[in-house]
Amino acid sequence: MDILGMLSNTASWIISPTTIAYAIAAVGLSVHFGYAGLLNFGMAGFMALGAYGYAISILSFGWPWWAGILVGAGASVIFAVLLGIPTLRLRADYLAIVTIAAAEILRLLFTTMLFDEWTNSADGLGGYHDSFRAANPIPPGEYGFGPWMYNEKDWWVRIFGFVLLAIAVLIVWSLMRSPWGRVLRGIREDEDAVRALGKNVFAYKMQALIIGGVFGAMAGVVFALPSAVVPGSYVTSLTFFIWTIVLLGGAATVFGPVVGSVIFWVIMAALDNIIPALADAGILPITNIQAGVLRYIFVGVALMLIVIYRPQGIFGNKKELTFVK
């Protein structure tokens, strides 16, 4: 077994674009669920809007990369408003069902042959990298050390992702120590009490939905930056993985979602390396395909165990428990 190769492979996931993208989405979801108590199960939809908004703006309209990002953000704001108007006044679990349904509608619309001209249907979109890469200030070459050796393009994606993540974290940190965040935490616990104190609960929830949604779209952009946009990525499982990350790190914490994403992907990468190796070596009596599936079973079990035994997450404070009974 190539232990060193496996370690290096696993370590590289600490700063992979996927890890960063999931972290940004998780920060967005922490605004929704952790601070505002909104059960958004449509994060995959917000991410799809970011990714497709970016790719379609560039491919179909020839706009520059930054305009693509703005389009993605704008689309997620509209999506959040459309979702929020009917559901934010209703019971919390209704929002869960509506958001999951809306995200699926988006995925079906991106998959259908009907809009093939723009979305390339199930095949997805690729080849939109030129504009973003042209803006790369890093001179060509290989940089880094150990498992983290990348060329200038890979670094540019990572650094840009980091910047977006840092902005998201900074915004959440500033918001949540402010009186605005206090109102939001009050709403999470008992919105009638906050309403009785003269706060427009609906507006606060809507603002939270929009902020988290825009973060979701940014996550979609970062997710799309290094590779391609394929509708099959934006399934409900994606949303559930982000939920696992948020609950793992601590939903009502600023850095929990970020650390959660790193832990999640490092463990996933480690399992992806170790289990097939064990299967190859004949230690585990399973096929290689089964070895690849096993880690997803662990995700599901982990999600259950976290929610039951440590709902506040690794970094969360039990007293600040998000789940209101």
């Binding site: 559930f240 696992t244 599901g300 079990v301 165990l305 209101v324 009974k325």
Partner: peptide
């Protein structure tokens, strides 16, 4: 355990079972 927690547990269960079937 609260209802929202239970709902998320059912999601975890759903994920786990789904991949057990695939396995």
């Amino acid at each position: 355990i609260g209802l929202v927690q239970m709902m998320i547990v059912s999601i975890g269960l759903s994920l786990a079972l789904r991949y057990v079937f695939l396995f």
